[in-house]
Design a protein around this nucleic acid. Structure first.
Lengths: 200, 200
DNA sequence: AACAGCTAACTAAGCGCTTGCTTACCTTGC
DNA sequence: GCAAGGTAAGCAAGCGCTTAGTTAGCTGTT
């Protein structure tokens, strides 16, 4: 075959056509994810890709805007992958399994990006945060809608949704590539745990 | 009665006798918790308690040392409260319930301090981190030992321990005092979820 | 009662350095 | 010859932290 099957999997950065804008964003994710937004300087990011600090400002108006771009791409990616994960599945139980597997594995594979989008919200400018919050709400609402079919007591749906998402999101905090379980393994195991939580 | 019963509950800051050293630490927790360590300046902390930035350096050798002091107090507090929660209880099931209730409620009540000790580890100096990591290991080992009695498949103990602790730790990320459930209510609910996860 | 002597606690001012970002200029491929 | 994409140098502002000096309260002696 001409193109491998893996390239067919949605590329996180597809909305940024390849070029210096994408290279900068990817470098920034690594730095922001490891040190945090405020501890990372424009010199750190530039140094990592062998450019001068001034290069950043050709492609982004500010460091804050670079963070916003990353946050937007990350949040849209995790939402789209979640929606795609349940597409074509009719059984409620299977839909939840597939969603949690994907959502969890995403936070393991992209744990540096996940750290940025989950733990750097307070570093966003107010207008940027507002736009990001809207995407987050869509993701949370989607999860609650999927979980609803497995929770008998409706009054507990909200708290359980938060709890189930917590499980996967917190993966970004502790995940260490070589040391932690493989993303798919983790996703499969966590999917079982979420089912247990929802049905209890 | 002369002294109220509530004052008998272990004070987080008891190892810092009351005075400017404690006042500074408490102010720093609020600022670090809301904005993050690197986004917080010594001027922010000083302003909050109506002092000059120089006052900090009479009581702490550096901003980094102030973070370390906070991290140490926080980690020791959560460990001690966890140990105290199971004291005198013999039934394994009841011990786990009490531990998770306490551990979860602590992260809700002290969510700003919890954010600092859980999400600012990378802001600690290497030597400081080493000392903090030792306390964290004791807490994790304690939890695993308690959970062991409820997990039938021993090979899954490690991953499930991480998952169960994740649930409570992540509370610090999203908890909003007036809006979120009361700490005890949350603790009781999460304790049930942890039991469901461990037994599944 | 008066007062020197000491200490703990604090401030005003500012130093040296780093930060995000700008400017003026250079290079390369069409 | 002209965009597109880059750099070297550096600016204004803000950073952690220091210095020199002030203030309030306690203590022992007369």
């Amino acid at each position: 075959m001409e193109t491998s099957e893996t390239t067919a999997i949605s590329d996180l950065w597809e909305m940024l056509q390849q070029g210096p804008r994408r290279t900068l964003a990817q470098a920034a994710v690594d730095e922001f994810g490891k040190r945090g937004f405020h501890a990372t300087t424009t010199r750190h990011i530039a140094e990592r890709i062998g450019m001068s600090p001034a290069a950043l400002y050709i492609h982004y108006p500010s460091k804050a805007d670079l963070l916003f771009t990353i946050a937007k791409i990350g949040h849209e990616a995790v939402l789209n992958e979640s929606l795609a994960a349940v597409e074509g599945i009719s059984d409620h139980h299977e839909r939840v399994l597939s969603f949690v597997r994907t959502f969890t594995a995403w936070h393991a594979v992209n744990h540096l990006l996940a750290r940025v989008i989950q733990y750097e919200l307070h570093s966003l400018q107010p207008d940027h945060l507002k736009e990001i919050a809207a995407i987050r709400r869509r993701t949370a609402d989607f999860a609650a809608e999927e979980f609803r079919h497995l929770v008998s007591d409706t009054s507990k749906l909200r708290m359980r949704t938060v709890a189930c998402l917590s499980l996967s999101i917190d993966v970004a905090r502790w995940y260490v590539p070589g040391k932690s379980p493989a993303p798919e393994e983790l996703g499969a195991e966590y999917a079982q745990l979420v089912i247990a939580m929802l049905r209890s």
